[in-house]
Nucleic acid binder design. Structure first.
Lengths: 345, 345
DNA sequence: GAAAGTAAGTAAACCGCTTTACTAAAGCGT
DNA sequence: ACGCTTTAGTAAAGCGGTTTACTTACTTTC
């Protein structure tokens, strides 16, 4: 436990009988030396157990070899999975990850974005979860080196990576249509979010393709939380169950709804069909196993990092790119034909 | 996007007509100045939007105001929740968090532990998941400033923070006993881990208190994974279901077991009772809702950080402390009296 | 055998902040 | 009017690397 100050470049240089420059340059590959000298230096490094001081290096080089990862809430399984994927990819590339949770507070988002300006981190994978009034976008455009993931920050001119929300909605719509549902409730997150918008459009399209205009879609908006799911389920019941199927726009919303529906004795899928979105929770063990649109969360996380590193931040053309990752439907057992004793509309 | 080099201390000093020392010392509170000078400096800081360069500061101060968090797998909801709690607490204290996933590879664990030696991080919250042959402990003792959480590293002489595993096992045992179970299968993680050991002892104690020696406990050991849960369930079936109740030592094990048991048409709790451990997954929505011992994961995470910061790392007395956090039982619906058509033993 | 290369390094400035040790000037007590 | 304190600062040496520009000795080449 005695803090014997760790060996520095100087010590290595002395031990090897060369200058610091030589060691440093050899280590950084900007100088190649005769085998003998090289050997001496390597021996010195090994015997002194030298490891470069990261702070000094960062100060000198002006970069940190660290990327920042900003997410609303790490405990949420969706973000947790994404964090894991980003960390994994970063690790593979020799980068460290600094983790920041915003808990959806704009103040924190702003603070974390500023990290880039002082080279605290070399770039940011940024996931937000709530509408932006333009401030965030402005800051992002000013700082650069940000990848916006999962949910849009509309005016930000940086690469963006989303799952194919429209396709997801479409798959859900088609699946419900296949079972004969024309009266569907869509429970989304905040209306301003593209995920909510696009999934809705996809859903509508999916139903229309089968039934044309003889469909009715109700739309509730809220947040991507369990609480909100509960509220929406109560509202749905209070309004007399005006649909034969529900498309819940996240695992959390679905979970909250199931809780309440179950309490009230509504059985799925006999009385009501339900389809979810995300599929990162163990939905297959639920009662009933929940059919859902699955987001390839890990792939998104890994891709986010590679986008961050591979983007040419000089060329503005390459910046305003929106990349969509396809989703799939995982059919389980929560969708059945519409119940007949269900009063519609 | 134009990288106009950010203002440094020097610029502030010039603008305020004082020396860098003065500004620095004022900022660090080691000098108090007459209101007028102070004002000038503050104005300069504001108008130049000065923010200290963290790398320079870290190099100079020899610390990083960053703590490292090492966990086996971030995507696992248990660790994800812990990560969230640690991050939150760290943020409250003005510290950054560097996140490292080991995926249970010792090499990585070692690499991350070394981060401390070079002040890369000021301390480490360390969660491992597999037995240690002594190497890890040695390294931990050498580097210091590590808090071992959730699972022990036996020879490490640092503060440790676990949930009260014995108590958890005991609660489970008593609960099963209350329903009349005397023949119980315990499915743990690796035998070498204290979690597995202590939970087993608690279970045994809980059953014994009720039934004395007329009990039989089978014990399977594996890993805390879904896959292992599946395997153990198959083994249990292959062996002819030699118990009326199962105590599964993690959410993952329980999930894996449920999957297989359900496939084979075993119904819980009619045919077989099941009780889990952790309770961070949405077990209440499972079929049936799963009774489980709940770990206060967030509390553990927060406490880990406060231990890290509050420990006096000089006094070796304060180091070898093991702190236990109480757990609770969450009774749902997966335990019932033993089925009669279940062949025991 | 002189000019031009090349191999094998090196000195010193710099990154931006912290901190120790020191000074100049003003106050103030007698 | 002199020494002593206090106030209000400052110069300069780090922290531990990176990097640019340069030197010195040894080969070639013609």
């Amino acid at each position: 436990m005695a803090q014997e100050r760790t060996a520095g470049l100087k010590d290595v240089a002395k031990a090897a009988g060369v200058s610091v420059t030589t060691v440093s340059r050899m280590l950084n590959g900007s100088l190649d030396l005769p085998a003998l000298t090289k050997q001496r230096i390597e021996n010195a490094i090994a015997s002194l157990k030298y490891q470069p001081n990261p702070h000094a290096r960062r100060l000198s080089r002006g970069r940190s070899d660290t990327i920042g990862l900003v997410v609303p809430d790490i405990a949420n399984p969706f973000f947790a999975t994404m964090v894991a994927a980003v960390e994994e990819e970063a690790n593979d590339r020799g980068l460290a990850v600094s983790l920041y949770a915003t808990l959806n507070r704009t103040g924190r988002e702003v603070a974390y974005l500023r990290l880039i300006e002082h080279n605290h981190v070399d770039g940011l994978v940024f996931v937000t979860n709530h509408p932006d009034n333009g401030d965030l976008a402005a800051l992002i455009n000013r700082t650069g080196k940000v990848i916006v993931v999962d949910e849009d920050v509309p005016l930000a001119a940086v690469p963006k990576l989303f799952c194919d929300n429209f396709q997801g909605g479409h798959l859900a719509g088609r699946h419900l249509a296949d079972f004969g549902h024309r009266h569907v409730l869509y429970v989304g997150g905040p209306d301003a979010m593209i995920s909510t918008q696009r999934r809705f459009k996809g859903l509508r399209e999916g139903l229309r393709e089968r039934f044309g205009d003889s469909i009715s879609i109700r739309r509730y908006s809220g947040e991507y939380t369990i609480d909100c799911g509960r509220d929406m389920a109560r509202r749905f019941l209070d309004e007399g169950m005006p649909a034969t199927a529900i498309f819940a726009s996240s695992d959390e919303i679905a979970i909250g709804m199931i809780e309440v529906l179950r309490e009230r004795g509504i059985s799925i899928p006999e009385d009501l069909s339900l389809i979810g979105f995300d599929d990162v929770s163990p939905l297959h063990l639920f009662a009933p196993p929940l059919t859902a649109i699955r987001q390839p969360v890990r792939a998104i996380g890994r891709r986010a990092l590679s986008l961050l590193l591979e983007t040419n931040w000089q060329e503005s053309k390459s910046l305003a790119i929106e990349e969509l990752v396809p989703v799939e439907i995982v059919v389980r057992n929560s969708v059945a034909p519409p119940s007949t004793h269900n009063k519609q509309r």
